[in-house]
Amino acid sequence: MDLNGLYQDIILDHYKHPRGKAALDAPLASAHHVNPTCGDEVTVDVAADAEGRLILGYQGQGCSISQASASVMSELLEGASVEESVKVREAFVAMMHSQGNVEPDEDVIGDGVAFVGVAKYPARVKCALLPWMALQDAQIKAGLMAPKEETR
């Protein structure tokens, strides 16, 4: 087993130096998600600026994968439009469900490509998805969803 393939340097870097890790002062909505098998936790806060671009905050504790994933997500989606956020999330989720058999698109998911190795470990997929699921939940609560998602 290739530990370096799972824990790519980008992941370790985000884990040790998380980006954007703070709660928002005035979130439109928040979502707290836990991974009940291991106790990982993340709370994602969302708000929007005057143009409707996302403002994100998060807090959490957990393994390197879940915490690095939150950091990558925050870096990618801070200031993104709602449509962009949905596109990026769907691409990330699809990669995590690919068992590692896709070539992820760095133009869409940026540092998120580093998680392709994680997709090979079913027990860790949940860790990587935790912040993204919390974000989706928070966006739904805040009404910050693309029209197509709202009707699903």
């Binding site: 291991c38 393994c63 860790c127």
Partner: peptide, 25 residues
């Protein structure tokens, strides 16, 4: 280190341990 990461490194060496709250949260 988070237990999940400790367990993963042990697993990579063939050592099977349990990580998590062990149903005693």
């Amino acid at each position: 280190l988070h237990p999940h990461d400790v367990g993963q490194v042990l697993d990579s060496r063939g050592v099977a341990v349990r990580v998590g709250h062990h149903c005693a949260w």
